[in-house]
Design a protein around this nucleic acid. Structure first.
Length: 891
DNA sequence: TCCGTCACG
DNA sequence: ACGTACGTGACGGAC
């Protein structure tokens, strides 16, 4: 018996539109490495898989509209006029959509002068004659007119997955009409979105009533005498030609001059190789993973065997049979929770030679030969997240000395903007699919739990170890190809050890001091609260921007300066403009300032002082920022207040951990501007630094045209400083004007003048943007790389942002490189000089130590000496130091 | 979980 | 005509 042929016809434009708007809120998340939007392609692909699986067609075609001009516009010029232009973010996706269809082995078809509908109508008619079953997929209900016993019309609803199926019975049920009568209905009532009118005053209700009575438009006009005289009847008579024209426009053609034969639509499934290449080009990682898991890669065939990993559960009795000093091991230590300073151990897996060992008993690590593997100098250890592992092991009394390959760190260096802390997700980004993400295995949020079933945990840990081992060679090769091996080997990898020591050391914090500050704050806050309620005439939550907005702008009728997405803005900048209009404003500003201190810096810090040693152990994230800076979390010790006197007091609570010790601090002076002077080779700016001038005052003299020895007023210096900052950030006249409080015109003049005075800087800014465009990324002094795909975006905002980033990242990132080098050398110098001093904190351009009082004179020489010689620039680096009994006094 | 706000370089 | 300084993390409130 012959099997039934099944034809699937898809309205490409309509489905692409649906997919685009369904994923519109995620538009900016769907951008591939070339800056192409991919949301419609993604949605289309999901829908396509869905429909292919349910319909299981033997023949497939996707029809597209050929253009605006069609036979319908010839008959009626206004047809589909007044429609919003297709957004460029969507139209750019069509060529790639067609590429994907071709990889799927599916024909895309369009026909001059006809719409996709007509192609579908014609092919459906031909297929029915050949006894095919036909399924039509579209987002447009008009196609329901094509439903027959052999043809089903599937209309996708809002999303891409919800589909409503129309058979003749369904159309009958919904409208009380046969599918063929849909065109009569449209002829009477018209179509707003296609922009044709129908008969005046006839809507869906009247239209349906007439058709139920007379069957068709022809029927209505043959039986006009049966209608009672009415306005409607007059309209029908006056607009007879319109009614017939509109019916004709609605009528999908079933005889379009299509040259394609049914045989050509035969579908044999996708070409997996092309599909894989396409997904790679689109950055569709989840689909790639799906393909791998489904065993669809020819060169990376995943069989059930390969999914599995053979491992041995490690036990006390087995330790003796392990090798003594292997050349290489790959190791993963699992802890439950992010904070490795105190997270519970969950187990470990280790690969040696080709064998995998795994256990929950982390205590085994303390014994031979495992301890020796990790501590001896001859075995290289491959890891994921070395810092986490170093600190976890240290808690077990194990001193990890040498790391060869750190998957997390290397991956970050390869692409600083596309990083994840999850081994499974990260492996996927490198086209390795045989390890799940932690979220898949452990869950997230309140559901997070290490599996109690041994095999589940053990397999996952072994998969992780296998991924590290497998990715080692290819990723190191990529680093080398990018000329980034030195950055990894000389800077980032050694830095991991330095950071680990700083985190383990921690900084002592005096809770009594914080509580003293707190009691004063609470008193002041309570007074302010009373004053604010009094001025507002009611009590409300001052911390709620929403409630505060109502009080200020509705009840007190203060002028609205700025709005946010959700309501009135009450940010500092806004409140400062309202100052003097009502006393409540000053009180709110003060309240905000103090409430921040209390919640973030008093309560927040008290919560994280360790009961064991009265210290705070932050974690530095080495693999997060796009520029190469560190960040500090849990708590953030890089944003302890300093600018305002009230907040600065918090620093009095940061104290040395031993009696008779001091806090010592050194910071780079204007490191970013010095970096800029170096990379731009601007002679004028370099001269200022070489002369040891006050750079902001010198800038002021030059851009405001003062004499070389003229005194610079505080105000001019402040403005020049703002311009200098603006330059570093990738300046815009608007941004500068907002910051300095001058007109945009004035700001523009400042910038022009600046570029005249510092032509090297101007040239650098232009060239770095060009370079970013040409190569797709920018680099720092030590070849740290940041990709900027959006620099090619057609969206002005995205593109401008990428351009400013191109200007800023080499500056900010090179400064980060420099202090990292200094930190490594510093740690070595402390050891080499047998000093007790410890490096505790890094705050971007500043290093903070604690040391016995008698070491301070040595540090005053040593630390600045190392910091200012960390790199050799075309301008000198300047370092300033200070010390005292608390961090507050080390200023 | 997102948003607005604000602390730092 | 557009909306804008660069890089972070933590908090409270609202959904």
């Amino acid at each position: 018996m012959k099997e039934t042929n099944k034809l699937l016809l898809i309205d490409g434009n309509s489905v692409a539109f649906r997919a685009f708007f369904a994923l519109h809120q995620s538009l900016e998340r769907f951008i591939n490495h070339d800056g192409l939007h991919t949301n419609a392609i993604y949605g289309f692909k999901k829908m396509l898989d869905n429909i292919l699986a349910t319909v299981q067609p033997t023949h497939v075609l996707v029809a597209f509209d050929a253009g605006k001009q069609t036979f319908r516009t010839e008959k009626f010029a206004a047809y589909k006029q007044g429609r919003a232009k297709t957004p460029s973010e969507l139209s750019e996706q069509f060529p790639f959509l067609k590429k994907m269809l071709s990889a799927y082995g599916i024909i895309s078809y369009e026909l001059t002068n006809y719409e996709a509908d007509d192609i579908i109508g014609t092919l459906a008619a031909q297929a029915e004659l050949q006894d095919f079953q036909v399924t039509i997929v579209t987002g447009d209900r008009d196609l329901t007119q094509l439903a027959t016993t052999k043809t089903t019309v599937a209309v996708n609803q809002k999303g891409v997955s919800e589909i409503e199926k129309y058979t003749p019975a369904h159309v009958q049920e919904k409208y009380g009409l046969a599918p063929a009568q849909i065109v009569d209905l449209k002829g009477l009532i018209g179509d707003n979105s296609d922009n044709y009118p129908g008969v005046t005053k006839i809507g869906e209700k009247t239209g349906l009533r007439l058709l139920h009575q007379f069957g068709s438009i022809e029927g209505i006009y043959q039986n006009l005498d049966q209608l009672k005289p009415s306005k409607m009847k007059e309209n029908l008579i006056n607009e007879e030609s319109t009614a017939f024209l509109c019916k004709d426009l609605a009528q999908i053609r079933r005889d379009a001059p299509i040259e394609i034969k049914m045989d050509q639509l035969k579908w044999d499934g996708p070409d997996l190789k092309s599909l894989r290449e396409f997904y790679l080009a689109m950055d569709f990682r989840s689909f790639l993973r799906q393909m791998a898991v489904d065993g669809q890669f020819q060169d990376q065939q995943v069989t059930a065997d390969q999914e599995q990993v053979t491992y041995q559960v490690l036990e006390q009795t087995k330790l003796a049979s392990l090798p003594v000093v292997p050349a290489q091991v790959t190791f993963y230590l699992e802890m439950s929770g992010e904070n490795y300073h105190n997270a519970e151990f969950a187990g470990f897996a280790i690969k040696v030679d080709d064998k995998f060992y795994v256990t929950r008993q982390t205590e085994l690590l303390k014994q031979a030969p495992l301890k020796n593997w990790l501590e001896n100098q001859e075995t290289s250890v491959n890891l994921f997240d070395a810092k986490r592992t170093i600190i976890g092991l240290r808690r077990l009394g194990i001193h990890l000395q040498r790391v060869a390959f750190d998957l997390l760190l290397v991956s970050y260096l390869l692409d600083t903007s596309d990083n994840s802390n999850d081994l499974g997700k990260l492996a996927q980004q490198h086209d390795y699919y045989l390890v799940a993400s932690d979220e898949e295995v452990y869950g997230k949020g309140t559901k997070y739990a290490i599996p109690s079933k041994d095999s589940r945990l053990f397999e996952h840990l072994c998969h992780k170890v296998r991924a590290i081992a497998e990715l080692q060679q290819p990723l190191l090769a990529k680093l080398e190809a990018n000329q980034q091996l030195e950055l990894y080997l000389k800077i980032e990898r050694p830095l991991t050890f330095v950071l680990a020591e700083m985190e383990i050391a921690g900084i002592k914090v005096d809770p009594q001091k914080l509580k003293m500050i707190s009691s004063k704050l609470i008193e002041q806050l309570s007074d302010l609260e009373k004053a604010i309620y009094n001025e507002a005439g009611e009590e409300f939550n001052i911390n709620s921007p929403k409630q505060l907005g109502v009080i200020l702008f509705e009840k007190l009728k203060l002028p609205v300066i700025k709005k946010t997405k959700t309501g009135y803005s009450t940010a500092v900048g806004v409140l400062e403009k309202l100052r003097g209009m009502a006393p409540i404003v000053d009180h709110i500003l003060k309240y905000r300032q103090l409430a921040k201190l209390q919640s973030t810096y008093i309560d927040g810090l008290l919560k994280v002082i360790s009961a064991k040693d009265q210290k705070i152990h932050t974690r530095y994230t080495q693999t997060l920022t796009a520029t190469g800076r560190l960040s500090s979390v849990d708590p953030n010790l890089q944003n302890i207040p300093i600018r305002l006197a009230e907040g600065r007091q918090i620093r009095q609570a940061f104290v040395p951990s031993h009696a008779g010790w001091k806090i010592f601090s050194s910071d780079y002076s204007q490191i970013e501007l010095r970096v800029l002077a170096h990379i731009s080779h601007d002679q004028n700016m370099q001269a200022a630094f070489k002369a040891g001038a006050d750079i902001h005052a010198s800038t002021a003299r030059q851009i405001f045209g003062l004499a070389d020895d003229a005194k610079v007023t505080a105000n001019l210096r402040r403005q020049a400083k703002a311009v200098n900052f603006g330059i570093v950030y990738g300046i815009s006249d608007y941004g500068l004007s907002q910051n300095v409080g001058i007109s945009r015109q004035q700001a523009k003049k400042f910038i022009e003048r600046y570029f005249e005075v510092f032509p090297g800087v101007h040239q650098y800014m232009q060239e770095i943007v060009k370079k970013a465009h040409a190569q797709g990324y920018v680099e720092t002094l030590f070849k740290r790389r940041r990709y900027l795909p959006e620099i090619k975006s057609k969206n002005y905002n995205l593109r401008s942002f990428a351009e400013r980033t191109a200007m800023n990242t080499p500056i900010q990132g090179s400064a980060a490189d420099i202090i990292k080098v200094a930190m490594i050398r510093m740690q070595q110098a402390l050891q080499a000089n047998h000093l007790q001093a410890k490096m505790l904190l890094q705050v971007h351009d500043e290093l903070i130590f604690e040391a016995p009082a008698d070491e301070i004179p040595r540090l005053e020489e040593l630390v600045p000496g190392i910091m200012d010689s960390a790199v050799d620039l075309e301008v000198p680096l300047k370092v300033e130091s200070a010390y005292g009994d608390t961090w507050f006094e080390a200023k």
